[in-house]
Every structure is written in structure tokens, then in C-alpha cells.
């Protein structure tokens, strides 16, 4: 573990990723302290350029809201969506992948056909359908994003389980008379987890992007200050007041970059074939 941390710390790109993610985290934590007012409240005249009014360093959006306040509060929303959706996707994916990979046979075939059925559907279209049916409350949106993101996690987990279940230490535990649940959770899963954790960073990045895409189509929850909502609002005024969309766009770019670099760094740090040398 210490060796992995050291490997991570030696990787400048991974460090940059961690710094970016910590920055976004800091913005989210500081939001209620720096901007105690409702970020969706009317703050001033709409569409003031960044810097034009010292009260609004990043200007105001078409609804007269402070973009800076929305950016800080939006960090919480985006991270929350990212974390929760990733948790949902990982929980489903690991459960299905573990069972399929561990038991094999017809269980595997059945579960993998279901997974493939989900994989063949473009996940954004599936998300649109879910939101159209169940509404666009932020909780619904977050869970829906998790629900469309699990198939790759399931396949990855299954592949790890397939290779690990025949190893000697698993067989040894089995000979000792330990049950399937114990074998899956205590013996195989801890060894299968590192690549899944790395992949979770990809899921998180995609989750944040999916919410932004929904909001861009004005289909996300308009009652929370998410970055995607701000981009969607700015779409109408893109030709003149481009900063309304550009500012949250840069925020999303940096967050995704941070999460991805962190994931890459984790991958390198946790992979014994790279760290060992």
C-alpha cells in the first residue's frame, strides 16, 4: 500500500489530477460559507459580463443569477452526482459481475446476455427514456445515471473473477469448507477490486458529463444549481454572451480531467507489473 502511494506521488500527472479534484472538493465545501445566499436567487441585472460589476466577478446568467455562486454550489452537485451514480453503478456491476464470474455456466450466460442487452443500448438514450418516464428530480437523475452505467463494471468484475476463482488460494479456502459468500467477498473480491476502482473513476467522469448533457437539453432538475443547467441556459445567448456556457464548461473540463488523471495514476500505482520495476 505504501509502495502504491509512493508510486502515485512520483507521478506528476496523477498529482495534478488529485490537486484538481481536491480543488473542486474545496469549492463545494466552501460554497455555503462564501455564498450563503440561494445561488438560484435573483442577484442582479441579467447577462452582466465577467468583471463588469465587482459584485459579480464571473458575471450573471440570463436569469440574473451570480455565476460565481452557481459555480461553487454546482461543484457540490456535480461531485455528488458523480459519487452517488458511481456507487450505484459499481454496486450493481460488481454484484452481477461477481455472481456471473464466480459461478459460470448458465448463470454466467444469463447474466451476461442481460448485460449485453444493456450495453447495446446507447446509455444516453436509455437515460433520456428513464428521465422521461420517472421525471427529472435530481435524485431520479442521479440514480438513472447509475442505472445506465453499470454494464462495463459488471464485465470487468466478471473477467477478474473468472481468472481468480481457479487460483490456489481460492481452492485452499474452499477445501477448508468456507461458503460461497465468504469465498466471493473475502477471498476473490479484494483481489479483483483494484481494476474496478480504477474504472470507477471513468464512470464518475462519464456520470458528470451525462448530467451536463441532460441539463444542456434542459432535461435535468432545474431546481439545483448544476453546471450543466448553467451551460443549457447559456445556449440561447451563445453568440454574444458566450461566457455563460464557457465558464461552467471549463469547470466541467477541469473536473473530468482531474478525475481521469487520478484514475490513470491509481491504475499505474495499483498495477504491480508497473510499480514493481
Amino acid at each position: 500500500m505504501r509502495r502504491a502511494l509512493a508510486a502515485y506521488a512520483r507521478n506528476p500527472a496523477a498529482l495534478l489530477g488529485a490537486v484538481l479534484v481536491l480543488m473542486v472538493l474545496g469549492m463545494g465545501l466552501a460554497a455555503p460559507l462564501l455564498f450563503p445566499q440561494d445561488p438560484l436567487g435573483l442577484a442582479g441585472r441579467p447577462l452582466q459580463w465577467p468583471g463588469a460589476n465587482p459584485r459579480f466577478p464571473l458575471g450573471t446568467d440570463p436569469s440574473g443569477r451570480d455565476i460565481m455562486a452557481q459555480l461553487f454550489h454546482g461543484a457540490r452537485v456535480s461531485l455528488l452526482i458523480g459519487f452517488v451514480a458511481t456507487l450505484v453503478a459499481s454496486a450493481i456491476g460488481i454484484a452481477i459481475g461477481a455472481v456471473a464470474g464466480f459461478y459460470g455456466g448458465w448463470v454466467d450466460t444469463l447474466l451476461m446476455r442481460v448485460t449485453e442487452a444493456f450495453q447495446t443500448l446507447p446509455n444516453f438514450l436509455l437515460l433520456l427514456v428513464l428521465v422521461a418516464v420517472f421525471g427529472s428530480h435530481i435524485n431520479t437523475v442521479t440514480i438513472a445515471i447509475g442505472l445506465v452505467s453499470w454494464p462495463p463494471v459488471a464485465r470487468l468484475t466478471r473477467a477478474e473473477f473468472l481468472t481468480l476463482r481457479t487460483r490456489e488460494f481460492v481452492s485452499a479456502a474452499r477445501v477448508q469448507g468456507l461458503g460461497d459468500i465468504h469465498l466471493m467477498l473475502r477471498e476473490v473480491l479484494p483481489n479483483a477490486l483494484p481494476p474496478v476502482i480504477v474504472y470507477a473513476s471513468v464512470v464518475m467522469a462519464v456520470a458528470i458529463l451525462l448530467e451536463s448533457a441532460l441539463a444542456f437539453l434542459q432535461l435535468s432538475d432545474p431546481n439545483v444549481p448544476s453546471w450543466g443547467n448553467l451551460i443549457g441556459l447559456g445556449r440561447n445567448v451563445l453568440r454574444v454572451e458566450w461566457y455563460v456556457s464557457a465558464i461552467p464548461g471549463v469547470a466541467i473540463l477541469l473536473t473530468i480531467l482531474g478525475v481521469s488523471l487520478m484514475g490513470q495514476g491509481l491504475n499505474d500505482a495499483l498495477n504491480p507489473r508497473i510499480t514493481g520495476k
Binding site: 435573483l42 422521461a132 432545474p222 431546481n223
Partner: peptide
């Protein structure tokens, strides 16, 4: 566009008098 702006303005204004407004967006048919 004016309907969307007006909805946001209603939400912002009514919160000033203690009425919480939740905006629900639907497509035309819905």
C-alpha cells in the same frame, strides 16, 4: 424563451415571500 425566464423569475420572487417553488419541465405533449 420568455416562459422559461418567467418561470425562474416566479421561483426567485416567491422565495422572497416564503413560498418555495419547484419548477417541473416537461415536453410539449407531456
Amino acid at each position: 424563451e420568455d416562459i422559461s425566464l418567467f418561470a425562474t423569475f416566479i421561483q426567485q420572487s416567491l422565495s422572497q415571500v416564503g413560498v418555495r417553488v419547484e419548477i417541473v419541465r416537461l415536453d410539449a405533449a407531456g
